[in-house]
Amino acid sequence: MASNTAFKKVRLKTEPAQEDLRQLALGDVVYLDGSVYTAREGVYRRAVEENVPLPLDLPAESGTNFHCSPAASIADNGDFNMGAVTATASFRFSKWIATWLELSGAKLILGKGGMSSKDYREHFVPHGAIYLTTVGYGTGALLGRGVKRVKNVFWREELGLAQAMWLIEVENFGPFIVESDLDGNSLFERENAKISAGLSKVYEGTKPAVLKRFGETDDRSDELI
């Protein structure tokens, strides 16, 4: 097994200063302290497309947007029970992200799988924001341990439990891996490029299907997102 000591581990506030973000390199491991809120397509549609005012003061209350729906329930007395938290794939939110970063002032986007370096350069870099990916991605129980308490849940009626905006207090919340830096580079794209170089050898001897499909490509370095 490769040793993990090579990775720099960093504790970061959920409203980090630009200098803190400047220190981070692709592949660094991050743990967070502060407040994080969940927002995904339901919230984006409401805030960005329907111009509904945000139910909390951002980024004052939190500068970290988690692409996530928690495994949580609300008891009849209003108590929250939050178990595991796992990210959802972020590439689907590309069309809202520019306006969202503007509206929310978020500096950290947490999620699954990252976004394209094009999104980073065009939208993240101008706002001084970076992307941290969850690890696994199934590490919901570990992340759940970092959740201190649910501070509030907004738009629960309008959007349902899964799409609602959960504001949670976190401590030593992680691990996350730095996927994009302040220059808009992407760790995933760097890894993809390395893997693509060896693919033609793996495919050797196979042959394309007799019946083709629309949009088919034999360029294995292509991505689907």
Binding site: V135, G136, T139, R145
Partner: peptide, 27 residues
């Protein structure tokens, strides 16, 4: 390196799930 780190985190995650009796994945 990175892939190893991820697998290690997953192994810890299963332990955490069992210890805390919480779902292993939020999804």
């Amino acid at each position: 390196d990175l892939s190893s780190f991820v697998l290690q985190a997953m192994l810890e995650n299963y332990e955490a799930a069992k210890e805390d009796r919480r779902a292993m994945c939020g999804d």
